[in-house]
Computed example of a mutant assay.
Amino acid sequence: MLWDLLLAFLKIGFVSFGGGYAMIPVIEYEVQRHGWLTTPQFTDVIALAGMSPGPLATNAAVFVGYKTAGILGAIIAGVGISLPSFLIIILLSLYLARISQHPLLQSAFYGLRPMITGLICYAAIRFAVQNDIIGGAGGFDGAGVLIMLGALAVLMFTKIHPVFVILLSGVAGIVIYS
């Protein structure tokens, strides 16, 4: 179990680009492939990881490791997902200054940007479906969609701090769903 956790999160750390939200589908795939958590448990893990301080992917790995194998599992999963980035950054820092303007590297980054955006959108849609905000067993949660769209609009068109948007969304949820 611990070896599987380490290998899975090392693999995720080595192949995932674009930050925590872009890594959610990759983490979900590994969690489901190994049967470590149910879909509702994984959804809860992502919600907790997003609300906790620190990087989302690392937090998610630690939570998955803890739910799967306790404290040692949390440590192993956290090291597994963080070690590749650490090693890659050390190696890149030695050479990046020299090759940062190379046309092939620039082209690779231009190709990765839309893919990362797609992964983030995929994770958001999956999260909405799994929580019956759109599609799913419940069909369509109009109030949930309004909260989501309202939060999106406020974040896109105002300079209100995201923490206040989170708090207001929580208050809206209390008012609507209580």
Rank of each mutant, 00 (worst) to 15 (best):
M1S: 13
L2Y: 12
L2W: 12
W3F: 14
D4C: 15
L5I: 12
L5V: 11
L5N: 06
L7K: 09
L7G: 10
K11T: 03
I12G: 01
G19H: 11
A22W: 02
V26H: 10
I27R: 00
E28Q: 03
Y29T: 07
Y29F: 07
V31E: 01
H34Y: 12
H34G: 12
H34A: 12
H34Q: 10
W36S: 08
V45I: 08
A47V: 11
A47Q: 11
A49V: 05
G54A: 13
P55R: 15
N59L: 13
N59V: 13
A60L: 05
A61E: 12
F63H: 03
V64R: 03
V64I: 05
Y66H: 09
I71M: 15
L72V: 13
L72Y: 15
G78C: 05
S82I: 10
L83G: 03
P84H: 01
I90A: 13
I90R: 14
S93R: 14
L94G: 15
Y95E: 14
R98Y: 15
R98L: 15
I99C: 06
H102D: 12
L104K: 12
L105Y: 02
Q106G: 10
S107V: 09
S107E: 10
Y110C: 13
G111W: 01
G111E: 01
P114G: 04
M115T: 04
I116P: 02
T117M: 14
I120T: 14
Y122C: 13
A123L: 10
A123Q: 07
A124R: 06
F127M: 12
N131G: 00
D132G: 01
D132C: 01
I133Y: 07
A137M: 08
F140E: 01
G144T: 00
G144I: 00
G144H: 00
V145T: 01
L149I: 12
A151C: 11
A153N: 07
V154M: 07
K159S: 09
I160E: 08
H161D: 05
P162D: 07
P162V: 10
F164Q: 07
I166P: 07
I166S: 08
L168H: 06
L168I: 12
L168W: 08
S169P: 05
S169T: 02
V171H: 12
A172W: 03
S178V: 13
S178R: 13
